[in-house]
Design a protein around this nucleic acid. Structure first.
Lengths: 217, 217, 217, 217
DNA sequence: TATGAATGAGCATTCATTCAT
DNA sequence: AATGAATGAATGCTCATTCAT
């Protein structure tokens, strides 16, 4: 871990960005109605589930009238999809943050891994939302396809590793899904609080990932 | 993989068991009402989601009257919990099937891995149900606790591996979650059908898992 | 009051009678199924209301199977009517108990008054049931007509009082309903426990009734 | 009776008031939705009983959609309580109407008696509703407590009568309940139509009440 | 843009009654 | 007589969406 930049700074940026991304009107002092709706919906849906979150509650908690919500979004489903697309973007941004200048493959692997882990850790709602709804039929295939693009940098990174024999010859899809799964596992442990996820645990986890794919020459 | 027994036979047994476990009345030739309800509910819930599966549909599809469903189960929720508990049991049984007589640690690791993977692969509904509802607040904590016990054999197996230095010194929780996550990842690839999961892919996947934890002496 | 027999002895007789009236089979050591059903229904209906007392609960609490209940009674309604008829009979019996040998009109008035009051006081369930369902359309008009006959002795007693100028010239229906209402009022005070209904209060109450109708010559 | 104002005019006022009390929006020409719901519910519940009056029927008969009913009232129960509270208010108003300027105690007694009798007689639905549900556990204790206050003027009037020896020394609770019971009895006779309740009968009834409590000096 | 009252189809659940044993 | 599993119509209530203002 010593050679890695701590991801905390990166995430702070991400979080600040998060705070304002929903705001289309940069002149408004408060949040735009649209942002209020999305924030409230995300919070309530993660806490309660989609079916357990009536539009009336989103209206009440956000302070935006029912009719206004429907002015901005065609349906409840559209809100869910809007949240999904936004969070995927955020995740994509987090992945690329402060990429280590080093061209050392292992360092870059650690950087990616850490970026994604920290993004999820810092954005519990985002993590839970994406975990719950990534597979859901509620999310349109357009939104899903749109979301896939953000993995492209990683996929390219893995392809490069396979070509350069930094990685063992493993099917690209298997490689991607497994490493992503490893990150998810650690995030889940973190939020379940079964054990405290400290630097040592993170270190163990990243190294498990690395050892599962690294081509020891 | 050559040294591993194919798990397909095991799973067939499990499935047969599955067919009859719900049947309390050994004299009945067909399925008991209770079994019909649970099977239908599992099928519909996996396909459509819980909220999208009205009790009236479970009644119609299963051919069991509404009132009869409520004679056997207190609520829709209780049905979901009953399915959860049953599937966890099945999973627990699958884990222990045809345990290789070999005391070679690696072989046993492969056996466990394969058992669980094959169980999920052969029981798509079980997999999707457990993926979707394992985290859900709909499942009572009693049911969840009950479900945890079935992992005990694996946990003991990992503890033993740590003690005997078969495994690298890794936190036990991290170890368990990560390996389980690896299996899940492969199952998901299988069901998404992005690529065809053949013996070679399975072999790569198990070896990724093994390499991530094996203590190369 | 001094010249009146204490009604307690009377009521004890009534109660004993009550205990056995439901028992058609005098050889049975326990209660008959029919009696168990009626007793349980009375208790539950008074406590919870009719709609809040499902047949299934009557079955469970009485220990008599659903089918058996329907063997003895055509419907839930029939149970309610059976209870009504039985309780009216009991009331009728109570009215006539230990009638004072004295032919003094006032004494006899006091006797009637006291008999009815004590019957209600000793049989809370009977009182509440009759109060609630006497007006109810659930009770068939046959049952209601049947119930009316038990007031005949009182009606005759009042007619006699009117003829003999013991009573003021008051419409017979008004007379009967008002005096009965007076008794009901006292019973209600007793069960509401706003005040403790002791001998003095009872005395005041009977005298109010008497003063409202007595022809002071 | 000659010295008493006929209460009919009073009641007409009450009824007019009744017509408009439910209307919160003074600009609406017709009844408010809320009023339509309450009126319809009162009518149907009195005619059929609570359990026999489904919300769907209230919706259909009132011409207000189901959802709208639940927009205004949290539950069926809340509707029942709203009706109860409203009717108790009406009764309270009726009690105080056109109070005779005379300070003659007997006249005032007759006035109160007549006011309450006429209110019930003119408002059959109110009478039946209150008779049926005043004891019911469906009515919240808050509503019941709220309802009690409307009897205060009468209670004070009786206390005064006891102090001034206009009335015999009778327990206040007994006094109140009995006189109220007498009124109820007459109203019931009226609605049962066993006999026609004309001025003469009313006169007899009030005098029975008065004779039962008056202190003949 | 914004509001929130109004809509009504849809759902989980209940319960009187039946019937095979 | 007795049993209790089975039935399914009926009910209270929810909630995504519309629309008049």
């Amino acid at each position: 871990m010593a050679e890695l930049n701590t991801p905390s700074k990166i995430i702070k940026l991400v979080n600040l960005k998060f705070l304002h991304t929903f705001v289309p009107n940069e002149h408004s002092l408060g949040m735009s109605k649209k942002e209020k709706i999305l924030r409230t919906a995300l919070e309530l849906i993660v806490k309660q589930g989609i079916q357990e979150t009536p539009m009336s509650q989103i209206s009440k908690v956000s302070g935006v009238a029912m009719g206004t919500i429907y002015h901005h979004f065609k349906s409840k489903n559209e809100i869910v999809n809007a949240i999904y697309i936004f969070l995927k973007q955020e995740m994509g941004n987090a992945l690329l943050q402060e990429k280590n200048k080093s061209t050392d493959y292992k360092s870059m692997f650690f950087q990616f891994w850490s970026n994604l882990f920290e993004f999820y850790r810092r954005n519990e709602q985002a993590f839970k939302f994406l975990q719950t709804f990534s597979q859901s039929p509620l999310i349109s295939s357009e939104a899903k396809n749109d979301g896939l693009q953000y993995y492209n940098p990683i996929i390219r990174f893995f392809q490069e590793g396979l070509q350069n024999k930094n990685l063992k010859p493993i099917d690209l899809v298997l490689l991607t899904e497994t490493i992503h799964g490893n990150i998810i596992s650690l995030v889940q442990i973190h939020f379940q609080q079964t054990i405290t996820v400290n630097e040592q645990i993170i270190d163990q986890a990243i190294n498990m990932s690395w050892n599962s794919v690294a081509n020891k020459k």
